[in-house]
Each structure stands twice: as C-alpha cells, then as structure tokens.
Design a protein around this nucleic acid. Structure first.
Lengths: 237, 237
DNA sequence: CGCCCCATTGAAGGGTTTCAATTATCGTGG
DNA sequence: CCACGATAATTGAAACCCTTCAATGGGGCG
C-alpha cells in the first residue's frame, strides 16, 4: 500500500494519505465522494510562493501532502520571525479558529502539494460524525501538547541542546509519517533555522561542526546524516 | 452584576463566573439544572495540595475559580520543571485529550476553588449544543495561539525581556478577567518564576532590582506594583 | 527571639552574540 | 561547460550576558 503511493508521487518526502494528520478522515471521505467541498485536495504551490498573508481572514486549514512550509510574522522592526516549519502530514491554521484570522504568513519552502479543508464545512462534519469530532479534538489537543514541550525546550535548553532537539524532532516527525531514514534533507536555510531557534547563524554553524567533530552528525549543505541517533537524543536533553 | 460576585467571594483574585473560560457554558447550565454531572463546581484544595499526579489517567478538565495552580513535570535528574501557572478563569488539561493521561503534576499554589468538567460528558454536550462545541474549539485553539506566542517569547527573548513579558502577561490575564489593578500579588516564589522562565533565581532577582531602578516596577516581596505599564510592555518585547 | 528559608548582592567563569574576514555553494550567463 | 557574481555558510577574536559560586540580608513562623 505504502509502496504504491511512493511510486506514484514524491521524489522527496511526502506522506501516504493513510498517515496524514487527517488520517481516516481524508481517504474514506473521498472514496465515498461525499466531501469534495470540504477537502480541496492537492493544490500546488511553487517554492517561495505565499499561501497566506498574515492577518487575512481565516477560512480553511492547510494540510501538507508533500514539500514543506514555514510560517512567520513580521516584527515591528520589519524583520521576519519564523514561528514554525511544517512537514508532510502537518496541519496549519488551528490557532486561527480562535482568532478568526491567520496569525502568520505561510510560505512554501519548496514546491508543495496541499490539501485545503474548509473550516465551516469541517464543523458541520464534526456535528454529524463522531470519529471526525474526536479526530479534530485530538489534533487540537496534541498540538497543545507539542507546543507545551516546545516551550519547555526553548525556556530551558542551551543552544546546542536546542539544535539537537530540532534535528531529532525533524527525524521523529518524518518517522511518524513512515520515513525512517537517518538522512534528512533540510528544506530551510541555516538562517531560517537560526531565526526559528532564536540563535545566530554563526552559532548554528559552530554547533553543527561540533556535532560532526564528535561523530553525531555528518553535514553536507542541506543534507544531514545522523550517525549516532542515541547521542543526538541525549544532546537534545 | 460583577460587583455582586465580588462582594460574595474573592478576598484575593477570583473570577466572576461570567468571565470564566467556560463562559456561557457554566452559569446557564447550572441555572437550567441540567448538568450537575458535567460540572462539579468549586471543589476546594488547600495550598500545596496536589490535584493531579503526572501520568495518571485523564478524565476531567479543571477550571480555576479562585487561587492559582502550577503544573510541573519531574525531570530525569529528579528536579521539578514547571510548565505553567494557572489563574482564575484558566483551564487545565486540554493537552490530555490527545494523550489520555495528565502530562504533568498539578499543584495548588494557595487555597483554590476549582470547577471540574468531566470530559466524556462534555463531549456529549458538544454533540448536542453548537455553542458549547464552538466554545470548546475556541478554547483549544486559543490555547494553541497562546503557546505559539510563548514559544516565540522563549526562543527569542533575553532574560529581562522574558521577565517583563511574564509580569505583563500576568497583568493581562488578570485584566481579561476583570481585574485591572496595577498591583499584582505573585502566587509563586522567585524560585518558581526562575524555574519556569529558564533562568536562575539570581538573575530574576537582579532584573527585578533593575526594573525598580528604572522606575518600571515597585517590588515588595510577593507584591509587584507596575509603575510604568508602557515601559513594561516595551521591555517585554 | 531565633531559626530557617527565601531573596538579594558581588565576583569569576562559561556560553552566545557581535563584528569581521574567509570560504563554499548556487544560479546565471557567456 | 566553465566562469562569474551573489548569496549562504564557516571560522576567528573580542564583547556581553547569564550562570555559578559564595556570602550577606531579610521575613515568616514556631
């Protein structure tokens, strides 16, 4: 089943629909042909294209099928402040349910395929389908859980711990979607990583060389090979 | 209306039920007398009492009526790591919907009055009542929104900015619940604040004296008076 | 009143940033 | 295909911020 998808799509990372955030919602609904309106499948955006501008009106959630996104806000001094990176299977926009607007700009880090979920129609689905309801609650809740862990990460960890945690979390997010390779291709620049982690690009660079010196990673441009996963986990906390 | 509540309860901070997180859910439901089972109102816990132990099975959400809570996990080296502080109107446990267990220990910082919401019964209410459904979604979503901002805070801010942001966010959380006083009584120790902010107690202390020297705050033990709110906001970012 | 814990203050050390220079990589055009 | 320029990444040295270690001060509770 998974191989079938792999052969059909995804030269790089993508997620078989069965492993997507929306999980059971997606495939069966499509098969039943009941929900074309809710789920607008696989819109494509090219690298650096902006999907959503900060503060525009919230209407739909985005689920990444393939590629990667970043979200950022523009600070008062005109700089870009990255909120997060989103990988295949991730869902973007859950915070906007409460604010009614998108709280950040969403930009494609490379060519992406996106499934778009109309929120209002999703809500009507929640009312009629308990498993959808439970899935959405679980999605929201696990997002909170993940953010809580992220807050701990940032409030407590030093630079090298942050970076180790960041790389390991990339690995784990891919793993959860069925990609267990120790080779990771970074979709984002060092500048983006530094910005996101609240470090300088120089520090990120220095730590990456340090991680190579102690044989935890092998870094070549945007490609990272995890030579010692356990050590990386320990470094990340 | 609000004054009525103020006179009835709350020597220190508490929230009139109309301003509680559950908002419209709480009062009308009780008045209708339909939902005694969902909402177990105003259980009391004394200072330092543990409401919930980490990793125990999740059954209900906690809404604070008066007093304050802290949540923490025990790290591998046996130390306490504080996740957050909860004030009147706040809701605790939303992350546990996905994990099915409580992800931290919940402890009373002083004598507290708590409303307890059974999750399963809340879900049946979600199915029958759209405004409840919307409220819960909004609660979950705004929690995500707040955590996103918190992640930005911790990943980017220096020690003095973190502390300024922390104090201002305390002020704002009280304000949202109807307490606009510039006098804040800290429910937690310096040690707790330092732990939570990922700083040392010495740094917290030094920054507080600095904030006094520049006439932003006046600090006397657990009491903080905000002398210059705008300056505090600027310092916090 | 005295004890203990919490908070404050000071000086030295370590980690991160800043500034500056060099090297590597990518896309473009010849 | 190579050369070139521009951008991204790496490396080094000094400055700054926060922590660590140590000592002192203060407030609450028996």
């Amino acid at each position: 089943m998974q191989t079938k998808y792999k052969s059909l799509r995804s030269k790089s990372y993508s997620v078989p629909c069965e492993l997507c955030s929306v999980g059971s919602l997606c495939i069966p609904m499509l098969l039943n042909n009941t929900l074309h309106t809710v789920l607008d499948r696989k819109k494509s955006y090219i690298k650096d294209e902006i999907l959503i501008h900060e503060n525009t009106f919230f209407t739909k959630l985005f689920i990444i099928h393939s590629g990667a996104l970043k979200t950022y806000v523009t600070t008062s001094d005109g700089n870009e402040q990255i909120n997060g990176f989103y990988l295949p299977g991730d869902i973007v926009g859950l915070d906007s349910i409460s604010t009614k607007v998108y709280n950040y700009t969403v930009k494609a880090l490379n060519n992406v395929a996106i499934c778009e979920l109309d929120y209002d129609e999703l809500m009507s689905l929640v009312d009629t389908n308990k498993s959808v309801r439970d899935m959405i609650f679980k999605l929201l809740s696990s997002d909170i859980y993940n953010y809580q862990k992220l807050v701990l990460c940032y409030s407590q960890k030093k630079a090298d711990e942050r970076l180790a945690y960041f790389i390991y979390s990339l690995y784990k997010r891919y793993e959860k979607r069925g990609h267990t390779s120790l080779n990771i291709k970074l979709s984002m620049s060092r500048t983006d990583i530094a910005n996101y982690l609240g470090l300088t690009i120089e520090t990120v660079s220095r730590i990456l060389t340090k991680f190579q010196e102690i044989d935890v990673l092998s870094v070549k441009g945007k490609y990272i090979f995890i030579k010692n996963l356990n050590a990386l986990i320990v470094l990340g906390k």
